[in-house]
Simulated scan of single mutants.
Amino acid sequence: MKRLVTIAIVLMILYCTYYDLSIGTLPNGLTKAAEAEQEAQIQREAEQPLPPPLAQAPYQEVIVEPGHTVLSIVEHLHEGPIPASIQEIVYDFKELNQGLEPEDMQIGKVYRFPLYHSH
């Protein structure tokens, strides 16, 4: 019985090795199709209209103090819940400050922070 199981395992290993070397386990045609679909998705996203520029968007200039973050300052500028997601707040901050990342803010400098109105 042990010989039969050993022979079956050896045959399975040989077959798997043959299959992997001759046909392969990575899909050949699917990777090209996936790349084409990804490029089409990127092109569709590029064709979508961009949001209006925030040049006219309301903002308030604030001097950053130790411990302040973009979110803490925006929360301080608003009463109640803010009608924007964290991603929107960070995006708007970057737009108002010439692409400055929030983590690059410096203490004592003045930055523009977006103001949101409840709908």
Rank of each mutant, 00 (worst) to 15 (best):
E47Q: 08
R44E: 07
Q38Y: 12
A46F: 07
Q48K: 14
Q56F: 05
E39F: 05
E47S: 06
Y59L: 01
R44L: 09
Q60L: 09
Y59P: 11
A55F: 08
A33D: 03
E47H: 03
P52W: 11
E65D: 13
L50C: 02
Y59D: 09
L30G: 03
K32P: 03
V64D: 07
Q60R: 15
V62A: 04
T31W: 09
E61A: 06
P52F: 09
K32H: 13
A57K: 15
I42F: 06
R44T: 12
E39S: 12
H68A: 05
Q56K: 10
A36R: 15
Q48G: 00
A46H: 05
E61C: 07
A34E: 09
V64G: 02
A46G: 01
G29P: 01
I63V: 15
L26G: 10
E61P: 07
I73G: 00
A36K: 15
V62K: 14
P51V: 03
Q38P: 03
L50W: 10
A40P: 02
P49H: 01
Q38R: 15
Q60I: 08
Y59V: 02
A34C: 09
P27Y: 12
A46N: 03
P52H: 08
Q48H: 05
Q60Y: 11
G67M: 04
V70K: 00
P66M: 01
Q60K: 14
S72K: 10
E37V: 04
E47C: 01
E65M: 09
Q38D: 10
G29H: 11
P49Q: 01
Q48E: 05
P58W: 02
Q41E: 09
Q43D: 10
E61Q: 12
G29N: 06
E47K: 08
